[in-house]
Amino acid sequence: MPAHRKPKKRPRPSLATLALAGATTAATAATASGGAAQAEPRQTPAQVKTEVDGLYRQAEAATQQYNGTKADVDATRSSLNSLRDEAARTTDRLNTARGALGAIASAQYRSGGLAPAMRLALSGDPETFLEDASIAERAGSRNAQAVQRVSDALTHLRRLRTQADGRLATLTAQQERLARQKAEVNGKLADAKRLLARLSAQQRARYEAGGYADGQGDTTTPAPNARAAAAVAYARGALGRPYVWGATGPDAFDCSGLTQAAWKAAGVSLPRTTYTQIGAGRRVQKSQLQPGDLVFFYSGVSHVGLYIGHGEMIHAPHPGAPVRVAPIDEMPFAGATRPA
Rank of each mutant, 00 (worst) to 15 (best):
A3G: 10
H4R: 09
K6H: 12
K6L: 06
K6A: 10
K8S: 06
K8V: 07
K9Q: 08
R12P: 02
T17H: 06
L20Y: 13
S33A: 09
A36L: 15
K49H: 15
T50F: 13
V52T: 08
Q58L: 09
A61C: 06
A62M: 10
V73C: 01
R77G: 01
N81D: 10
R89W: 04
R89D: 10
R98K: 08
A103S: 12
G113D: 08
P116K: 07
M118C: 03
R119A: 14
T128E: 09
A136L: 02
A144P: 02
A144N: 15
A146Y: 03
V147I: 14
R149A: 09
S151V: 12
S151G: 08
D152K: 09
R159V: 06
R161K: 14
L168K: 11
L168Y: 05
A173Q: 12
E176M: 12
E184L: 12
V185I: 15
D191L: 14
A192L: 09
K193E: 14
A205T: 15
Y212F: 15
A226W: 10
R227P: 02
A229G: 08
A230C: 09
A238M: 13
G246V: 04
D254K: 02
D254T: 11
T259Y: 03
A265S: 12
A266K: 01
V268P: 01
T273C: 06
G281H: 04
R282K: 10
V284F: 08
Q285M: 06
S287E: 09
G292M: 11
S299V: 10
H303Y: 02
H303S: 10
G309R: 00
H310E: 06
I314L: 04
I314M: 04
H318F: 14
D329Y: 13
A336P: 01
A340V: 07
